Amino acid sequence: MLATSLIIVTSVYFLMNIGLIFIWLSGKPYKIQAGGKEPLAISIIIPVRNEAANIIRLLQDLEIQSYPFDKFEVIVADDDSTDGTLTLVKDFQRQTSMRLLINQLPAKTNNTSPKKRAIDASIQLAKGELIVTTDGDCRVGKNWLAVIASFQAETGAYLVSSPVTFINDSNSFLAKLWQQIQTIEFSSLIGSGACAMLIGKPNMCNGANLAYLKSVFGEVGGFSGNENLASGDDEFLMHKVAAAYPGKVRFLKHQEAIVETQAHQSLQSFYYQRKRWSSKWRHYNNPVTTALAVFIFLSNFSIILTAVLCFLQVIPAEKAVIILFAKFSAELLFLILILSFLNKKRLIWLIPVVQLIYPFYVSFFGLIAQGKNEYIWKGRKLQ
């Protein structure tokens, strides 16, 4: 009976991944159409705290955008940096030709999310009709803004989620391997979130590459209702927009829209971020999204349970093989497709290794997220 239940759970997971594969393949990459609607003016908001090592590279990327300078502005929201970030941005501001504003936030005195506070305060200053958010440790291609603006103008989307992946630039073998493992793990989230949007059922996105109408941000109440949560500057807002305006949340499937961000350098920073992410599902008002999160946990926990029961000879080896095949086969094909789109084909060989780790990772964070949620972010303890 137990083996049958495990087979059922993983078989449903197999079918879900088959569905994701078909959805991804049916979602054709976006192609810019000549002579379309006039794109909107854009305000790029970059919340930063202690990003001295990265922020100038991002600003340099923005300085060479193919999108006209008179059509966008950049707002760097400095959240009490202590490492020289603000000085670097001010120096860059003096010599750049693009419109660069610095929003120096007052010292944080309450328990609101620092990132939500930075974005909200910057939107008040923004002159653009389309808000685009990214992070201070990101890199963008020269056509990044042009593709986002064209897609939004053509589709009339109120919120556009675009792809994110990790930078794999370490010279150390172990450090680079750690970056690559994170890249594969993260690609599964990006891919599944994209597929949900492609069928009009958005469930996740990433604030490192998000665009939305300034007017719509105000209409749905911005971050009100979850401003005290450390996470969710992206997903909670997306859920609000999707609920208020069905069909207006879209995923931009275009390789020039990809943003690359820094992978975590330490296990501790990875732990705090994933704990923060995994705790969000309890606050979703969408029962489908909550049920999906629970099912993903059960699917992965089933693999651990299968291994233990097979070792104890509670379930026969042939049934364990069926369970493992159902869990890993279609998932492998889906990850290959997503990594190929993200220009990470060279990591395909590492997918089976990550697949073996993933059930323990999901089960661990799914369980600890039920406890007291405290995180360290940029040197601060948040809840």
Score class of each variant (00 low, 15 high):
residue 197 M to W: 00
residue 139 R to D: 04
residue 199 I to C: 04
residue 382 L to D: 10
residue 227 E to N: 11
residue 127 K to F: 00
residue 166 F to W: 08
residue 163 P to G: 03
residue 344 K to Q: 15
residue 368 I to F: 08
residue 217 F to I: 08
residue 114 P to G: 06
residue 244 A to N: 10
residue 176 K to C: 02
residue 168 N to P: 02
residue 159 L to Q: 06
residue 293 A to M: 10
residue 140 V to M: 15
residue 339 L to Q: 11
residue 185 E to I: 05
residue 281 W to I: 03
residue 38 E to G: 00
residue 38 E to Q: 13
residue 278 S to N: 07
residue 306 T to K: 02
residue 312 L to E: 10
residue 40 L to S: 12
residue 374 E to Q: 14
residue 345 K to F: 06
residue 136 G to I: 12
residue 324 L to N: 07
residue 42 I to E: 05
residue 225 G to R: 09
residue 213 L to W: 01
residue 355 Q to S: 13
residue 224 S to A: 15
residue 200 G to H: 08
residue 221 G to H: 07
residue 179 Q to Y: 06
residue 265 Q to I: 05
residue 162 S to K: 01
residue 372 K to I: 14
residue 16 M to I: 09
residue 80 D to I: 01
residue 334 F to N: 08
residue 40 L to V: 01
residue 182 Q to W: 09
residue 13 Y to S: 09
residue 189 L to Y: 13
residue 295 F to S: 12
residue 1 M to P: 10
residue 92 F to V: 04
residue 116 K to N: 07
residue 145 L to P: 08
residue 164 V to S: 02
residue 51 E to A: 07
residue 17 N to S: 06
residue 106 P to G: 09
residue 24 W to A: 03
residue 116 K to V: 02
residue 292 L to A: 13
residue 133 T to G: 04
residue 147 V to S: 09
residue 94 R to S: 15
residue 165 T to F: 03
residue 252 L to P: 00
residue 118 A to H: 12
residue 368 I to H: 09
residue 71 K to A: 01
residue 97 S to M: 05
residue 180 Q to G: 03
residue 270 F to T: 01
residue 27 G to L: 03
residue 119 I to V: 15
residue 353 V to I: 15
residue 78 D to R: 01
residue 288 V to Q: 11
residue 131 I to K: 02
residue 92 F to I: 04
residue 333 L to P: 02
residue 101 L to A: 09
residue 26 S to T: 09
residue 214 K to C: 01
residue 126 A to D: 05
residue 107 A to T: 14
residue 128 G to W: 12
residue 142 K to N: 12
residue 324 L to C: 14
residue 199 I to N: 04
residue 39 P to D: 06
residue 121 A to K: 14
residue 238 M to P: 08
residue 223 F to Q: 01
residue 300 N to T: 04
residue 345 K to D: 13
residue 382 L to G: 09
residue 203 N to G: 12
residue 91 D to I: 05
residue 303 I to Q: 06
residue 92 F to Y: 15
residue 182 Q to V: 07
residue 274 R to G: 01
residue 193 G to R: 00
residue 231 S to K: 11
residue 180 Q to S: 13
residue 344 K to Y: 07
residue 20 L to M: 14
residue 265 Q to M: 07
residue 296 I to H: 10
residue 90 K to Y: 05
residue 27 G to P: 00
residue 137 D to E: 15
